[in-house]
């Protein structure tokens, strides 16, 4: 059960963008360099983030990307769902074949739905700003106080 590279890199890129943008745009190249991610791959990730309305692009030689909203208004859930799709731990299409089985229905209701609920509650509670604050603390070498 894993979050894909797209989700992992996308989240790191969003944090990087928020940390380095200072209200202006940041070039994709510099994010790629700082994060050690291929620029071509990051372009695909940003195309998805742009379609989801999370980042805007500025064209031209000095172009780049900026966040559409303030980091405090961007939930981690928005970022992850735009890149990963729904964050369900069970493939709904696959489980449909056994929908008439009471055993599957019972496990779904009591376990899979509960796990999904916990995941979604977490990612919709944490904002991009929360992660930036924690990242700054980590950079200063202090012990993280992840309060979420």
């Amino acid at each position: 059960m894993k979050i894909s590279t797209k989700g992992r890199y996308g989240l790191r890129a969003m944090i990087d963008l928020a940390l380095y943008s200072n209200g202006t745009h940041v070039s994709l190249f510099s994010i790629a360099q700082r994060q050690g991610i291929s620029g071509i791959y990051l372009e695909q990730v940003f195309a998805t983030l742009r379609k989801a309305g999370l980042v805007k692009s500025v064209k031209g030689a000095q172009g780049g990307y900026l966040l559409c909203e303030s980091p405090k208004d961007i939930k981690i859930g928005q970022i992850l769902r735009s890149l990963e799709g729904d964050l369900s731990v069970i493939d709904e299409n696959e489980s449909q074949k056994a929908e008439d089985s009471l055993i599957s229905a019972c496990v779904k209701e009591n376990v899979w739905d509960k796990i999904n609920e916990n995941i979604n509650l977490l990612v919709d509670k944490v904002t991009l700003e929360d992660l930036i604050i924690e990242q700054k603390k980590l950079n200063e070498g202090s012990i993280p106080m992840f309060y979420i």
Binding site: I3, R8, R12, L122, V126, L131
Partner: peptide
């Protein structure tokens, strides 16, 4: 910092 989020997840 993302590691902290994944850990929490």
């Amino acid at each position: 910092v993302t590691r902290l989020l994944w850990q929490k997840m």
